[in-house]
Amino acid sequence: MSGILEGRVAIVTGAGRGLGREHALELARQGARVVVNDLGTSGAGEGASDGPAGEVVEAIRALGGEAVANGADVANFAATEALVQQAVDEFGGLDIVVNNAGFVRDRMIVTTSEQEWDAVVAVHLKGHFALMHHAAGYWRAEAKAGRTRAARIVNTTSGAGLQGSVGQGSYSAAKAGIAALTLVGAAELGRYGITVNALAPAARTRMTEGPFAAQMAAPDSGFDAMHPGNVSPVVAWLASEDAADVTGRVIEVEGGRICVENGWSHGPSRELDRRWTAAEVGPAVRELLKEAPEPEPVYGAQ
């Protein structure tokens, strides 16, 4: 197989179903050799099975590509280190990390348990960090040995992390953290030839089949704007050597629409040459709010 990723080696997490599956298949079509990681859990992160990852590996091989399965829990720090080593051992190196693994446990803040919060933050935020850490360590060592690779990290945030989502406090917080981690990663890792970007995909997956089922339904005919495969060509390009000049960006993809997010930026301000008094703060902030753009609404807000 040949394409824009010919000869490159990729890890895709959460690649057994949905977005991750489509990413793994697209990267393989573009010539990448793929380590297909999936713990095989339910949509709520329960249980485990090697079936989903194995099925994607077989699908890639049926296309004429090369792939191996990995069943590691990405929230396990040692397991992600072994995942990087597996790519190196199987395919002779590593060029691409696509962090996609995750699940949701939708609850209002007042009903979210500590265990539910920890589980969601662990798989999304810690899982992204753990694989970034170990992959970046490998790439740094390669660069210091004079073998700088055109390394690419593509993270997965969400509109929930950018605008918030009612009933998804843990998921929204984790995804917001991933967006910030992406910016920091881009700033820190560029010296080693590594770019770090994030996608905010809107697609039909297990995580959207609950509260957003009606909006995500497939049409009777025509272009299926919510098919997860619509997102994957953007992942493939960001993972290519051609994308060397793009880093620290969050890109929203929905159907045929690609949008570069602005993120947090400095807005209107006032400054004194002394400390503000508490009585002065209210009028000043209200004037600034009149000058600032209205924030986008939180998903699900009334």
Rank of each mutant, 00 (worst) to 15 (best):
H124M: 04
A130K: 03
G193I: 01
E271I: 06
V88A: 08
R204W: 06
G7Y: 10
A179C: 12
A284M: 07
E142T: 03
D38T: 04
F103M: 06
M1Q: 10
F77P: 01
Q302S: 15
R147N: 11
A75H: 00
A292M: 09
K175E: 04
G14F: 03
A217D: 09
M1C: 10
T247H: 01
E46I: 09
E114Y: 09
L125Y: 08
D95M: 09
E114F: 10
G190A: 08
V56L: 05
V234G: 00
V68G: 06
A136P: 03
G222N: 07
G137T: 08
A15V: 02
S269W: 09
L289I: 15
A101I: 02
E294G: 06
P283F: 04
W117C: 00
V281Q: 13
A202C: 09
R152E: 04
G40L: 13
S269L: 05
L181I: 04
M1F: 11
A278Y: 05
A202D: 05
E296S: 14
V110T: 15
Q30C: 00
W117F: 06
G43K: 05
N100W: 00
L183C: 05
V234T: 03
Q215L: 15
P268N: 14
M226K: 14
G222D: 08
H124L: 03
A214H: 13
E58L: 14
A243H: 10
